[in-house]
């Protein structure tokens, strides 16, 4: 749920990166953080375990610039991907404006992707959202690795809706900003629709 503040002339939106454990959600945020000018970003917060697995969430605030005199800010969150952190994942989806599903292209994570996407749908429904109606994009991460699933097969199972999708390698940054731009754009278009624009 976006927050439009007429007093400070700001608009804040929340983007959540979802996906199976170790698919590269945190790496996406880290790359965005590294490549963003200091004045456009806040501190990145990672609530992680000692082994650097996300425990609760990562958080990165970004200021993109102005639209019609309103400062546009995006708050990027990741969820913990490991299956047993489901209670935390539900909490982080509260008030979400747009979702990035980060799939792990490796063959052995094929089922984990499907399970995670199903979990996303269920958790969104619990909050009263429908994935189909939310700004939503898919990123096929780790596409540089040798043992990847057939992209067509992945697409068929993960993206039957034909939402925007991107091949990515989050460690080198390939596809990271394309993914972010795409979901941000969808969110702004949604705001426009909600405001009565066409």
């Amino acid at each position: 749920m976006s927050f439009i503040n007429y007093a400070s002339r700001e608009i804040n939106c929340k983007i959540v990166y979802y996906g199976p454990g170790l698919c590269g959600k945190t790496t996406n945020l880290q790359f965005v953080y590294q490549k963003t000018a200091p004045e456009a970003k806040g501190k990145m917060i990672s609530l992680a375990t000692e082994t650097e697995r996300t425990l609760f969430f990562d958080f990165l605030p970004l200021a993109l610039g102005e639209i019609r005199g309103f400062k546009t800010r995006f708050h990027l969150y990741t969820v913990p991907g490991q299956v047993f952190y489901d209670a935390s994942r539900k909490l982080i989806l509260k008030g979400v404006d747009g979702v990035v599903f980060v799939a792990d292209s490796q063959e052995e994570r094929f089922d984990a992707n499907i399970e995670s996407l199903e979990n996303l749908k269920v958790n969104l429904e619990e909050q009263g959202y429908e994935l189909e109606k939310l700004p939503f994009v898919i990123q096929y991460n780790k596409c540089d690795l040798p043992n990847i699933s057939d992209p067509e097969e992945l697409r068929e199972l993960l993206n039957p809706w034909g939402v925007p999708e991107f091949q990515a390698c989050a460690t080198t940054g390939e596809g990271v900003f394309e993914t972010l731009k795409s979901v941000a754009k969808l969110i702004l278009m949604e705001l426009k629709k909600g405001a009565g624009g066409r």
Binding site: I4, I11, L64, G65, I67, R68, G69, F70, T72, F177, K181, A184, K185, L188, M189, L191, K192, G194, A195, G196, G197
Partner: peptide, 20 residues
């Protein structure tokens, strides 16, 4: 009342592209 003067009703694709 339908009088919501949202700053976003009038935004264009160019406005959005300019952000990036």
């Amino acid at each position: 009342s339908g009088n919501a003067e949202s700053p976003f009703a009038e935004i264009t694709d160019d406005d959005i592209d300019n952000l990036f």
